[in-house]
Structures are given as structure tokens and as C-alpha cells.
Amino acid sequence: MSFDLSSTVRRGHPIAFGIFALFSLIVAIISSAVVASFNNNGQPSDKVVRDSTRFMIFAGWWSFIFSIVYIVLFLTGIGGFLSSIASHAVFIVLTWIFWLAGSAALSSKVGDVNCSDATKAGAVPYVPSCTAVKTIVAFGWIGWIELTFLLCIIIMLGVKAFTGGRGVSDGFA
């Protein structure tokens, strides 16, 4: 028993990648603003927070740009191998690793910090940006969860294409 997923993929791909592009843009903008604040007000003494926030700038802009590229390639039907299942899998796996690394590193330092208590006590060296850093963590994990979902879909489509006689270098629909 087999059913055709092509219409679902045609509708779902731009929606899923559009949502991920939105999360990526949010992370990129907030991370950029936090790093600008760090640059203007002095770097935090915690190098993990400083470096992870900078890494999330990269991960956010990387994800935003490539998500938009994949949406355009998918909607226009051009790109050949660039818009293939294999290409999507490589992009999603690499991006999944980026978001996992950045989100986990930031979470390890700010996960249980209460920003209002830290402001009073002066215990956190990145107090002016504490809530913004926690926002990066939250959106980082949300984006990572969506990437995990997309990775499962790509694997399913790749297996279906491979067992159906098509190659993973073929397009989606």
C-alpha cells in the first residue's frame, strides 16, 4: 500500500522552511544585537556566553540564507541536484549540528539563571543582555526541534525515494 506524498510535500516544504527561516532570522537579529551590546559595553567575562552568542549569529544567518535559497529553488523547480533530497539532507544535518552546539553551549551557562535575581546580585557578567541571551537559547532550541522534525521527514522521503526506484539526488515531488 503506497500513497502519494507529492502534494503534501509541495505545500509543506515552503511552509516548514519559511517557519525555520523566521526562527533563524529572529536568532540572527537578537544574537547580533547582543554581540553589539557586548562590543559597546565590554565583553562578558564568561567566554562560553561570548563565543556561543557569536556562533549563534553565524548559525542564524547561515540558516536564514540557505532556507530562503531552498524555498526559492523548490518553488521555481530549478536547481537540479541543489534542490534534491540529498542536498536537503546535507544542509539539514549540518545545520542541525550547528543549532545543537550553539543552543547547548548557551544553555549550559544561562539555562537556570534568573535574570531578575542576577541583576540585583550582580552575579551574572552579561546582565544587560541576560534576557536576550535566554531568548536566543529558547529560539535556538525551538529551531533545533524543527530541524529534528525536518530531518525525520527528509530521511523518510529519502528512504521512500530509494526503495521506490528513484535516487536521493532526484527532486522531492
Rank of each mutant, 00 (worst) to 15 (best):
S24P: 03
G111Y: 05
A104P: 11
F74M: 04
A123T: 15
N41E: 14
F98A: 14
A36E: 09
S24F: 01
F149K: 03
V127N: 04
K109S: 08
V35I: 10
I71M: 02
V49L: 02
I65D: 04
I68N: 11
F23C: 10
D112R: 11
N40P: 10
V69R: 08
V34D: 00
A105R: 12
S52A: 15
L94K: 07
A105G: 03
M56I: 05
A123V: 10
T131N: 00
S24A: 11
I26T: 06
S67P: 03
G79V: 09
P125F: 07
G42P: 06
V35H: 10
F74N: 04
T148W: 05
K134N: 00
D51L: 11
R54E: 13
Y126N: 03
A28W: 15
F91S: 06
G140H: 07
K120A: 09
V69M: 10
S108N: 12
F38T: 02
A118R: 00
A101W: 13
A59H: 09
A123G: 07
V35Q: 09
S83I: 13
I136Y: 01
N39E: 15
W144L: 12
L94Q: 06
Y126M: 02
W144K: 09
F38P: 02
L94N: 08
W141Y: 14
P44Y: 03
V49C: 01
I85V: 14
K134T: 00
G42I: 08
V137A: 00
A123P: 01
I85M: 08
T148R: 08
F91W: 12
F55E: 07
S87L: 02
A104Q: 14
A36Q: 15
T148H: 10
I57F: 05
A59Y: 12
F139M: 05
I71A: 01
T148D: 06
V69T: 13
P128H: 02
D46Y: 05
I92Y: 09
